[in-house]
Amino acid sequence: MDESFVAMKEMPSMHSVSRVIQEAHSIRTIFINGKIESKPGQFIMVWLPGIEEKPMAVSYLSSSEFGFTYHTIGKFTKACDNLKKGSTIGIRGPYGNPFSIRKNALVVGGGVGMASVSTLIDALENPVVINGARNKGSLIYMERFSGMIVTTDDGSFGRKGFVTEPLEDELSNKKFSIVYTCGPELMMKKVFEICEKHKVDCEASLERVMKCGFGICGNCLVDGHILCTEGPVFGSKILRNLKEFGNSARLKTGKKASLKEYYGWRS
């Protein structure tokens, strides 16, 4: 038998919450005591005993604690709102294919999608970061990262408009080796198309309904790719051939739906 036959990271272990911070309106970070060997872009499965289990990006990482940042939307995240210092939750993982780490990088985060690129920003050397959100109240990590280019859809903070506008400017003015992105899928699709136009590599962190996290339940497939093990981070080579990227996703039942229906069902 392979050495990998018993991998305890696939079974939840209980950890205590060390602190909670409010990042923005309806967006919080739960910090957890303990150490996890997670690479930028990887995720964990968070279990609230008696409630539910969901995949969450590791958004903070240090030698003594790690954290995940969530937007309160449904049953699970509403239950997360009740977590406080000393609460215990189950964690398994980390899972997934991480971002590559390259020099001379640009990072584009949209809304709570910033959570999936935050430990990447920590790991990169002076990246240019574009952080976009609906409005001022939805922007996260404003104090955590300095020198970001900030956009809001309604112009309540920073540049008015979408992240794609400063992205165009940056790629036109300077040569970047790679663009990393996470946010709403239509935004990422746009970011990818702009990268293609400027012939710059892109890595995007995608999201689908996930059950096992280790590649066998088959719920999270995007085209022929198992998102939880081959992704969630996909590079340009794969993104170019993904018919479902920016178009469709599978609901919990496995039924194919438009992205609009998929996101409508989730919220």
Partner: peptide, 25 residues
């Protein structure tokens, strides 16, 4: 829609699952 998670995990020696037969019909 099947059951909510945890649906599946690995323990030393095997795997345990209760996904509840989600399916598109």
């Amino acid at each position: 829609r099947g059951l909510s998670g945890p649906n599946m995990f690995v323990f030393p020696g095997g795997m345990l699952n209760a996904v509840g037969l989600p399916g598109q019909g």
